[in-house]
Design a binder for these strands. Structure first.
Lengths: 162, 162
DNA sequence: GTGACTAACTCTCAAATTGGTAGTATTGTT
DNA sequence: AACAATACTACCAATTTGAGAGTTAGTCAC
């Protein structure tokens, strides 16, 4: 899709998706979090066509989620490392994974364990302010141009309440 | 990308992405959470070509994230409602939004408030078991075919530690 | 110093998908 | 009868993807 106009969308979800709103980018980020750094590691892990991998890595690098670093001068070799912004993507990965485990969880699945306790990680999203789980309380969406008290520009998510 | 083989991928992230691994699907789900239900509401909100919207809505319905419901017999009219699985997508949306706010947050942004307290929601992902924030402790990834004690088939995320 | 090998690509081209616009079907409204 | 609303379908040009072969630049084994 057209990622030009979406970049200045007032919705932070839309803005993010302009950068990683496709399957390959997210899988590359997943693999990067799993420790992969090199072109051929990604290519083999994903079974992606090299031309597409080149483009995706370049895009993610441009956008500041990955960083290209030369790890050998002779021969000249590059690797792709997660930037802080790329590392901040981990919670997104976990929530996507949680959804998949819950709703597409048949058969053998990769598991994510806490390395210290050895327990399986169950990722949940909470509101840091109220401590409530996301989705358990009603939410008010406020558009950027509306006064906060002006109901006419607000929408409510009615589907979830405590 | 090819969504056939990814459906049985052992990684829950990959499985999820087979269903909503594209920008339009995620934005449709976002709008559905914001209360939109009808074809033309989605079309106008997203500026999406109708043929593509038709296909995406059908896919999301097929996959069980949306449900098509006839809300009028005369004239025959349909609307698309979130299923429980679709509603469970909300934490993913929030984490994507959090990322965008943090890393692409310039200018006017839509805000999400707790309807009761009126405070801005700051979504964070935590491990329900340990209570630790995702990304603050080392993680062990266990492949489905490996013995849990067999190090040879395990990978560690080394990038993040407490 | 020749041949095999590795890493990180680029090139090519057919196939699939997308975007943009116009048009259709069914019904209600004036 | 004309017009509007809703939920689409049809069409076609433009873009993107997928699959595979080829390229470049070096290392290593003998």
């Amino acid at each position: 899709m057209n990622t030009e106009n979406i970049c200045n969308d007032p919705c932070p979800v839309a803005r993010s998706l302009a950068l990683f709103g496709d399957t390959w980018s997210i899988l590359i980020l997943r693999d990067a979090h799993a420790g992969l750094t090199r072109f051929d590691q990604f290519r083999k892990s994903l079974g992606i066509a090299p031309a597409i991998l080149t483009r995706r890595l370049a895009a993610l690098t441009d956008e500041g989620l990955l960083e290209k670093r030369r790890y050998s001068e002779h021969p000249p070799r590059e690797e792709y490392l997660l930037t802080p912004a790329g590392r901040d993507f981990l919670p997104v990965l976990f929530m996507i994974g949680e959804w998949g485990r819950e709703h597409r969880g048949g058969g053998k699945l990769v598991r994510f364990l806490d390395a210290e306790t050895g327990t399986e990680i169950k990722a949940v999203a909470i509101d840091e302010v109220t401590g409530a789980r996301i989705g358990t309380r009603p939410i008010r969406i406020v558009m950027p141009d509306s006064e906060e008290d002006d109901d006419s520009f607000e929408q409510e998510i009615k589907s979830r309440t405590v």
